[in-house]
């Protein structure tokens, strides 16, 4: 199918883009288009106006280190996130999450900014950014602000972005002594994932000093397993604590159900992934 007709805007500045989006309620920004265009083609969603933002100077792809912080620009594609050296070295969970998105063609076109702004609970990067305690950089008609990722996802496809606000990038402080892992289960590469888990733990002599765990397709929004994180703190990573962490991370979940996975099945998958992630990190530490 072809999308319904729409009015196209190609603003010259970020401010102009924000003002357009603010004053035209039914206008949507177009970044890589790998979620928006399929929805428009299926006519699940038909915005009356589209604001192109990918060409704006502030949005251009790029990853850089500023002191102990990694800054990732909004239009950085999943393929770039996957292969970037800074991200692979300091934020491997994000690199692994990007590598596991759909297929090569979609990774070449889809962007980290668009992916997160979409607010879909089944986007890999959301769990990884939750695990990394990222900050979302947003620019609106009244200026810029940083939104902690914990406060970003409000509901299904609903984020903390105010009308007219556009994601310009992300900031992540480089975690110290960190071990990270992303794992997911999917029916096929291009299908929506059934479940995924992103883990970031700080270890000292085999003891977990801090932990952040992101869960995907576990609730209407991407979420953290805060109770399990608390439990894991100051514990030795071993079979017993791994089993208990997985149990605590998943026991109270009420994940969505569909034809591919019932809520119970999905809960079980998340439990299994949680154990696999932690076991794989335990193996890494032993080596």
């Amino acid at each position: 199918m072809r999308p319904r007709p729409f009015l196209l805007h190609r603003p010259n500045t970020l401010k102009e883009a924000s003002e357009l989006l603010y004053s035209h309620e039914d206008a949507k920004p177009l970044a890589g288009g790998q979620s928006l265009i399929p929805m428009m083609k299926l006519r699940i969603y038909s915005p009356e106006e589209i604001v192109m933002i990918g060409h704006l100077p502030e949005m251009q792809p790029g990853v850089k280190q500023e002191g102990s912080t990694i800054v990732i620009n909004s239009m950085t594609t999943h393929d770039m996130v996957h292969h970037n050296e800074l991200i692979s070295e300091y934020l491997p969970v994000l690199s692994e999450a990007a590598a596991a998105i759909a297929d090569q063609q979609i990774r070449n076109r889809g962007t980290i900014g668009g992916n997160i702004a979409h607010g879909d609970p089944s986007t890999n990067l959301s769990a990884a950014l939750l695990a990394l305690d990222a900050k979302v950089l947003a620019s609106g008609k009244d200026g810029q602000r940083e939104i902690p990722i914990d406060e970003f996802f409000l509901d299904l496809f609903t984020t903390a972005l105010e009308p007219g606000e556009i994601i310009t990038g992300f900031k992540v402080d480089i975690p110290k002594n960190s071990r990270q892992k992303f794992m997911k289960i999917t029916r096929s590469d291009t299908a929506f994932p059934l479940a995924f888990v992103a883990v970031n733990i700080q270890l000292s002599d085999g003891v977990v000093k801090d932990a952040r765990i992101g869960l995907g397709v576990a609730a209407p929004t991407p979420i953290r397993a805060t109770e399990a994180e608390e439990y894991l703190k100051n514990k030795q990573l071993n079979q017993e604590t791994i089993l208990k962490t997985a149990e605590m991370a998943t026991k109270d979940l009420e994940p969505p159900g569909d034809v591919h996975a019932s809520p119970e099945y999905r809960k079980n998958l998340l439990n299994v992934l949680m154990k696999r992630c932690l076991n794989s990190l335990l193996e890494e530490v032993k080596q």
Binding site: L8, L30, G33, I37, P38
Partner: peptide, 13 residues
């Protein structure tokens, strides 16, 4: 030089 699915891009892009 990058592979993409041309059914998921607008010509204007």
């Amino acid at each position: 030089g990058m592979s993409v699915k041309s059914c998921t891009m607008f010509a204007v892009e």
